[in-house]
Design a protein around this nucleic acid. Sequence first.
DNA 1: GTGATTATTTATCATATGATAAATGAATAG
DNA 2: CTATTCATTTATCATATGATAAATAATCAC
Lengths: 192, 192
Amino acid sequence: MQEKELVQLFQLFQKYTVLSKKAEEAIAAICSPITIKKNKDLQPIGHTCKTIYFINKGIARIYYFKDGIDITENFFFENSVIARVESLFTGKPSRKAIQALEDAEIVGINANQLFKLYDSFPEIERLFRKIFEAAYVETVHRIEGIQFHTAEERYKALLQEAPDILKRVPLKYVASYLGITQVSLSRIRGLK
Amino acid sequence: MQEKELVQLFQLFQKYTVLSKKAEEAIAAICSPITIKKNKDLQPIGHTCKTIYFINKGIARIYYFKDGIDITENFFFENSVIARVESLFTGKPSRKAIQALEDAEIVGINANQLFKLYDSFPEIERLFRKIFEAAYVETVHRIEGIQFHTAEERYKALLQEAPDILKRVPLKYVASYLGITQVSLSRIRGLK
DNA sequence: GTGATTATTTATCATATGATAAATGAATAG
DNA sequence: CTATTCATTTATCATATGATAAATAATCAC
């Protein structure tokens, strides 16, 4: 894969660890560029997650259906890693999909090949261990944010922490992310 | 540390990977036995998490205070690993405490020493990577369980998935774990 | 065992959010 | 540009849950 398209990804890596040249090359060899149009699924529901994604440009979300209702689990912006970990780490099919919310440029990392690299490059295993540890910590914070906060508090927190989401993402997706209906979100936004 | 007290821990390890004898010894060398009385804190609020715990016997919970209210983040039973990951993985002090809910027998694993072992034993790094990946997956499921379920549904799901919690843990702790008040939980239990 | 503390239930009232429907506004295809 | 679809807001009503208080029940210290 072209070096130009991997600049941002390797910059992210540097936050966690310094990779040897060989390790960088090994990773570059299992990366593929993906361009995807707004509203298209990057990965459909039912597929086992065998790719870890990195966003160079655009926004994506993980979503699933509960009783026929579309629920957004999470949003992902530029320079973040996306994976449906409940599938990636278990080998089971995922009930979730990944969708681009803007025209996006993405790097796909082949997970099986990555896991093989772990054997010959402990530094790569360490890098991804740290990446997912950080994602795990974020998920724990998310639970705190949900437990014992009203919808209004959650909305205001989002407004503080990630105002971009509200600017770039349809509110209907934000609503389910906050655990409320679209109509409730609209009402809350209308307050004051 | 005595082998007898490490039997359960090593059994857990076997679910993830087969450790070399040397690796097992290295881990045993950084483990300490802990006995703690019911309702005592294993780790207080404000401490940076430098120990990973494993429960041989008893129950524990992670809790914190939000606006002066005691909130249970999670329960832990026999044969499970406890860590305040938001502190362990960031090095920041934790706003959460770990408390024994029954007289408990616990193994403490020194985290700093463990992380040093990662350098000489990639197999140990891999083991704990997998352990925390599994915990991460559980946390993701937890979010699904919270988003878009009524309190009653969450209670019934708990009754299905972990009836032990309701038998062995005071309901006031269960209530905040479910994200509701103790009074609401009592009302829900009274239904039908 | 007895009294004191703590946990749980029950009751009442207030309120936030859901469900539904309809109106308005924005985006998209042709 | 226009028509059609889709997203958002507004309104009304129903209901689940919170807040508070009080009554029981269970647990614990001595």
